[in-house]
Amino acid sequence: MANTEFDQFRGSADYVADDALRNSVNVSMALRRPLLVRGEPGTGKTLLAHSIARGLGKRLITWNIKSTTKAQDGLYVYDTVQRLNDSRFGDRDVSDIRYYIKLGKLGQAFISSEQVVLLIDEVDKADLEFPNDLLNELDEMSFFIPETNETITAVHRPIVVITSNAEKELPDAFLRRCIFHFIEFPDPARMEEIVKVHFPDIQNNLLGEALKAFYVLRGVDEFRKKPSTAELIDWIRALIAGGIPHDRIFKEIPFVGTLLKKETDYDFFVTRHQGRRRPNSRADAYRMLY
C-alpha cells in the first residue's frame, strides 16, 4: 500500500497479523471509528490491542467489561458515599465536588495528553443496553459531567479496539459506527509463524509434530470446545518443559489436558484415540493426563 499515512499498523514483533487484519486496523484508524474484533476464544483478540499499542508506541488503557459494568463507570464515578462520610466526620474539605469525581477508563483515555489505545475488552459481557449507552461518547469523544458542569473532551482521539465473544448480539446502531473484523482461525502455515513468535528457537520436528496433532484434534467435530491458539501455545510450552521427544508427540499426545478443557471432550478423546474405556477413578484419569 502506497499511502504511508494510512499504512500505520504493520503488526509487532510478538503478534502475527494477516493482511486483512492489518487493513481493518488501518481503516479504523484512518476513519477514526472503533474497531470491533470478534473471533473464537483464544485467537488473540485482546492481544491485538496490545500489539497495536506496542507497534505504534502508544500507551494502552484496558477497560475490562463485566456483567455488572455500566457505561457510566467508564466515564466517571461520583463518590457520594465518600463525600458524605467526609462531611460527617469533618475529615476533609467537602466543598469541592471535583475531589470526589473519579474518571473511568474512557475518561482517562480522553484526558491523556498523548494519543492512547483504548481496549474495551469483552463488550458483550455487559448488559444488552451497554453499547448503546456509549454511542454518543464514542462518536463525539466527549461527555458532560453535570455535577461539576464540565465537559470532558478528548485531547487526542484514542484508537478504540472493542472485543466481543458474540455472547450477546450488539445493537445495530452501535455496529453501524464500528469497523468490524472477524479473526479467522489460522491455517497451519500461519500457525507455524505464530508459534515461532512465541518460541523463536523451537525445533522444527517438534513444531511439525505438535501442529499435526493439533489440527487433527481441531478436526474432531464431536468436541464441545475445540482447542485454540492459546491452548496450543500452552501445550507446546508444556511439551518443551517436559522434554518430550518429538516422535512421541503425535502417537501419545501427552499433556492433552492443556488442549482439551471440557470433561466430556477429554472422555471422548480417551475412549476414541487411546481405545480405552472411560477412566473409572480419579487416579486413573490423573495418570493419563500426565
Binding site: S28, L36, D172, I179
Partner: peptide, 14 residues
C-alpha cells in the same frame, strides 16, 4: 484491498 475494506466497513457479523 477493496474486498477487505468494504467488508470491514459494511459487514458487522461473520
Amino acid at each position: 484491498e477493496f474486498y477487505y475494506l468494504a467488508r470491514a466497513i459494511l459487514v458487522k457479523s461473520e
